[in-house]
């Protein structure tokens, strides 16, 4: 995970941020217990400050691209509005003092058990591929990736 060097948090006052930075953007796979693992990276430009909320349509499109979702142009205004309202709702957490609080990723703070490293399931390729959209000779079919 790469952190932006100039990132700083301020309360969401609705004021425009006083500076901007180029952010190396990564999407983090939380896994079962929120243990971060970088999986995707693409550079984006964002305005900073805690108020760095994507209030302009291009920003929502950037998030959508990371999520591999395509938003219709006609729906963009509505999607952006609802997205921004949700971020405004969650912004109230900034008010809470969490200095020194250890993040909780599992309600019992438990560690996952490891199972024995042994085969427990036989080959079920046919059963598992019965629900696949397109298969051939036991392989999943996708559009051509390399010419």
């Amino acid at each position: 995970m790469t952190k932006p060097s100039s990132a700083k948090h301020s309360k969401n006052t609705g004021k425009s941020a006083s500076f901007s930075f180029v952010l190396k953007w990564e999407c983090i796979n939380v896994g079962v217990f929120g243990q971060g693992e970088s999986v995707v990276a693409s550079p984006l430009s964002f305005h900073s400050g805690y108020a760095a909320m994507p209030t302009i349509p291009t920003d929502v499109l950037s998030v959508a691209q990371l999520a591999r979702l395509r938003i219709d142009e006609a729906a963009l205004g509505d999607v952006t509005d609802r997205f921004t309202r949700t971020l405004n709702l969650v912004a109230q957490l900034e008010e809470i003092d969490t200095a020194g609080v250890i993040p909780m990723s599992n309600p019992h703070d438990m560690h996952q058990r490891l199972r024995a490293d042994s085969v427990t399931e036989g080959n079920q390729r046919e059963a598992l591929q019965q629900t696949a959209p397109a298969v051939e000779d036991g392989f999943f079919l996708v559009p051509k990736v390399i010419d």
Binding site: K3, W25, C27, A67, E94, P103, S105
Partner: peptide, 26 residues
């Protein structure tokens, strides 16, 4: 999915996801 992707993205992970996990403990 959009909100979650945003909250987990590198520049905002601490401000959103980590912060929420801290409040979760509170």
């Amino acid at each position: 999915i959009l909100v979650g992707t945003y909250a987990l993205s590198a520049g905002f992970y601490d401000a959103y996801f980590k912060k929420a996990q801290q409040v979760r403990r509170l």
